[in-house]
Design a protein around this nucleic acid. Structure first.
Length: 275
DNA sequence: ATCAGAGCCTGCCAGC
DNA sequence: TGCTGGCAGGCTCTGA
């Protein structure tokens, strides 16, 4: 499931193929994938892409055209979304669940596919609107600090895991990296956020940054659906210490890893290493 | 303020 | 073999 490292990997792999290219044609095959009051006219047709930006799990494709103001397409991959560039002539008919495709002038195709359709596309009218939208998110997980984390969650009674999943606290952390970061920091997922010390928040922020940076280096975690912008899986799942490993021995101390629901999510932790 | 639960949605897998 | 139910969890909304 695409969290920050996966979206960042998609951004990096797509960037060289998209920046500077003009969208010759945009096809929306499933109109309901276009969210909000976006109009289909806003799918960048005729515009030239000049940047791909990411904040948390959101990816913005910024484009401009002679005719009108800047156009921005915001992409959220949800659970099973993929944004894949084909150098040649992609055959979307051979691939299921392709909801939108963009034909680039000079060759190449970009596909948005999303079997479960938890993801979506938003048309954003201006850079100011994008900034306003992103202002509602917490700091990006790659640069989160203990101070920012403590300020956003330090007075909350909810479980620290719930705070980490809240995109207004820290942007880009999902179920996988929340569990991995809590393990690395030695903090139990059910601890009330307000009971964490200053030192805990500092360690947690460092753990989040390290876990996310390592996963970006490994090109993301491919559990089931995720592939990068060129269609290749990542390798970060090989480094997971707890996610998906309930019942197995902790790699550090050998204690059987516990698994239970926390904040409505399957959560795995080591009862010995995490306090 | 925080929670649980429902809803969106499909693929996969275990069990019968 | 084929059905069914459970599970996976991004996010949002409602009601407690």
């Amino acid at each position: 499931m695409p969290e920050l490292p996966e979206v960042e990997t998609v951004r990096r792999t797509l960037e060289p193929h998209l920046v500077g290219r003009r969208v010759a044609r945009a096809d929306l095959r499933r109109p309901d994938i276009l969210r909000g009051d976006s109009s289909p006219a806003a799918l960048l047709q005729g515009a030239t892409i000049h940047a791909l930006q990411r904040r948390g799990k959101q990816l913005a494709i910024l484009a401009s055209s002679r005719a009108a103001k800047p156009r921005i397409l915001l992409v959220h991959l949800g659970m099973t979304g993929q944004l894949i560039h084909h150098a040649g002539k992609a055959d979307p008919l051979s691939t299921t669940h392709v909801h939108a495709l963009w034909t680039l002038s000079g060759g190449g195709t970009l596909l948005f596919r999303d079997p479960r359709r938890f993801g979506g596309l938003w048309s954003i009218p201006s850079v100011a609107d994008l900034e306003a939208r992103w202002a509602a998110l917490g700091p990006d997980g790659l640069v989160i600090t203990g101070d920012r984390l403590a300020a956003a969650a330090g007075r909350s009674a909810r479980a620290i895991k719930a705070s980490l999943l809240d995109q207004a606290v820290v942007a880009g952390v999902g179920n996988i990296y929340a569990d991995e970061a809590l393990f690395r920091a030695g903090i139990r997922p059910r601890r009330a956020s307000r009971l964490l010390t200053r030192h805990d928040f500092e360690r947690l922020a460092v753990a989040i940054r390290e876990v996310l940076h390592a996963a970006v280096e490994a090109r993301g975690s491919s559990i089931r659906d995720y592939v990068d912008g060129s269609g290749f899986p990542g390798k970060a799942q090989l480094a997971h210490a707890v996610y998906g490993k309930g019942g197995l021995p902790c790699r550090v101390c050998g204690t059987r890893l516990r698994s239970a629901q926390v904040a409505q999510r399957t959560t795995v932790w080591c009862p010995t290493c995490q306090r």
